[in-house]
Amino acid sequence: MSARASETSPGLWTLAWRRLQQDRVGMTALIVVGCYLVVVLLALMGWVAPDWTREVGVNYAPPVFWADDQDETAQPSQAGQALSGPVPLYGLQDPLATELAAIRAQHPGAQEATEVPRRLSLPLGGDKWGHDVLTKVIKGSETSILVGLVAAILATLLGTVMGAVAGYFGRWVDDAFNWLYGVFTAIPYLLLVFAIAAVLQQKGVVTLVLILGLTGWTGVFRLVRAEYLKHKSREYVLAAGAMGASHMRRMFVHILPNTSHVILVQLSQNVVGFIKSEVILSFLGFGVPVDVVSWGSMLNEAQNELILGKWWQLAAAGVAMAILVTAFSMLTDALRDALDPKLKY
């Protein structure tokens, strides 16, 4: 982490790392998060789950462990039915009919072209068109985690720089940034995101990252600003000033490393927050485009499937997200404890 960590005396990062290693819950969480990241990386390289759009199973193929309980003979007819016409919704009004129509419109070619024999059951089941849910959940994780991660980095970067400048320089600079902060926090976060999503007609992963990142900096800003306000009058910064260290040097060489625990914890918290936001946005159809799968879009499909008793897509997406978010939250708590500056001395 730090260049100095390798030297004879343990630096603060080394000490924090040692404390984290003592924390069994924190280490478990770290390993879980690490596993997710590895899967995301592999998916990104195309080594796992290369194509989720292939229709490998019959429609609503049940998960392998569940298939025994099902009436196997019923599968082909149901599949045929689904292929030939719209899925019956048992008289319930479908609130997402427009989205479903859009998704269907995207895929008719794929459905007709499929001639390979379809499997009756899949590891984690299949969806309405027979896409493999396992593949989808991996690709969905890739999308949701990447969006969350990149947006969080963007927001944290923005918040840190703005908070540092505002807190360090104070006076009118602080007033100006505080005004901006006031404006952005006056509008509830999701409403602001909705408004931007409504204005920007084109959907896309990059758009999503930008929306989340450009609106989500406020939390980091508030905390980093407070840290800078506190640290700028600390004696070590005053001493650096008395020595002739420039403002830039005091801001980024002296103070920044001493606020890094706040920033890191915020970054970690933001990842969780943005993943949750992405899921809600994609669920409502304001997030990822229809040709990209994310946990949110899976939950959207799963909502209607559940009424038919097809619970596996919901379970897969819901559990995948819950495990990651739980692990990330626990990691955040562990980081907060391990990096606690009160334990430095």
Partner: peptide
């Protein structure tokens, strides 16, 4: 130059 009161705050811990 100046030497401050609090020896715990006057040296950059990093």
């Amino acid at each position: 130059q100046i030497v401050f009161q609090n020896p715990y705050a006057s040296l950059n811990p990093r």
